[in-house]
Design a protein around this nucleic acid. Sequence first.
DNA 1: GTCTGTGAACGCATTCACAGCA
DNA 2: TGCTGTGAATGCGTTCACAGAC
Lengths: 184, 184
Amino acid sequence: MILPAGENEYISSSELAELVGLNPTRIRKDLSYFGDFGVRGVGYRVESLVEKIRSILKLSGGQKVAVVGAGRLGTAISAYPGFVIYGFEIAAVFDSSKSRVGKKIGTLVIEDSSKLVSSICKKGIKIGIIAVPAKAAQETADKLVEAGVKGIMNLSPCYLNLPGRVKVLRNDIAMELGALPYYM
Amino acid sequence: MILPAGENEYISSSELAELVGLNPTRIRKDLSYFGDFGVRGVGYRVESLVEKIRSILKLSGGQKVAVVGAGRLGTAISAYPGFVIYGFEIAAVFDSSKSRVGKKIGTLVIEDSSKLVSSICKKGIKIGIIAVPAKAAQETADKLVEAGVKGIMNLSPCYLNLPGRVKVLRNDIAMELGALPYYM
DNA sequence: GTCTGTGAACGCATTCACAGCA
DNA sequence: TGCTGTGAATGCGTTCACAGAC
C-alpha cells in the first residue's frame, strides 16, 4: 500500500512517521501495544508488519461490503478499486429506484432495496455503506442492522440512532469541508 | 441544517448534545469559548446560534471551491447539492482527460487541468478538493498551492507534502472503512 | 552506535460540580 | 426551578527520556 514496495526489507519508526506525518515515538507506542513487532537496532520487517496490521484490523478475511444507494456517490464508491487493498469486496449494491435496479456497475448488478434484508442475510455481509439521501438514511440503517450488519459507514449528512452494538462511522464530506475555512 | 427548523425559538445544550451524540457540558464549554451565546435558564436562541457558528467557521462569505478530477467521485461531489448549506459554491471543475473537458456537470463546464492555475487565480478560489488518482495527487496539490489555494481536502489515498501555511484535510474513504472491522 | 520498547512526565481535552442569572 | 458559564478535578493520549537488544 503506502509502504515503498521492494525496497529495504526493514523500515524504522522514524521512516514510518515521516511517511504518515506523525511522531516516531507514537508509531512505536501504538505498534508495541499489540506486541513486539520490531527488531531493536534495526526496525520493523515490512512484510510481517503489513501482515500483523492486516490481522489486527481483521482485514485478512476478505470482508464483504454492501453499498446502499446507487446515485452518483454510491456508484463512485461501488466502482472504486481502492477497497481491495484493504481486503474489502463490494458484494452488493442496492437502490430503491426502479430505473436503476438491474443495471450494472462493473460486474455488480444493482438490487432492489426492498430485497436488502434478505440479500444481505443470505450473502453474510457484515459491513454497510450508506449513500442515500439524508431522509432515507435512518430507515436504511435500521434495515442494515436488521439484516445483521455489524458496522456502518454513513456518508449521508445526518446522525443515526442505532443500538450500541453496531459501530457507526460518519463521513460527511460537506461538513468536514465546513471546518476548513476556520483553520485557514 | 440539522436544527429542527421552525420549532422552538430556543434550544438547550442537552437537546443539542442529544442531536449530535455528545455531552451537554462539552457543548456549553465549546460554545462559551467563543463568547456568551446562551441565556441562563433558557438555552440558546437557534437563529443567532446558527449565525454565530457561521461567522466563527467563516462560512458566511459564500466560499468558492474548485474540484479537481471529474471521474466518478469528482462528478458526484461537483453535483452534490449539500455544500450550499455550509455556504460553499463549487465554482470550477477540472480534468486532464480531453474526453471530459468541455462536458457539463449541471451548469458547470469541466475545464482543462492545464488551465488550473490561471483559472483558479482569476476566480479567486481559495479551497480545493482533490479527486484525482493517487499518482496525480501531489502534482495537483502543488498546482493548487501555486494558484493561491489556502485549504485542501484530499480524497485520494495518499499523503501530501505541502507548505505548512496550507491546511490539508484527508478523507480516504477506503482507509476509514479499514478501521471498521477492528471496532466491530 | 542504532533503533525498539516502555515507565514517567506532561499537556490537553473532557467531565464534574457548582456559582450566576433568568 | 432550569439552564448557562466556568474553575477544579479527572482522565487519556502524546511526548520524553532512557533502558534493552542487536
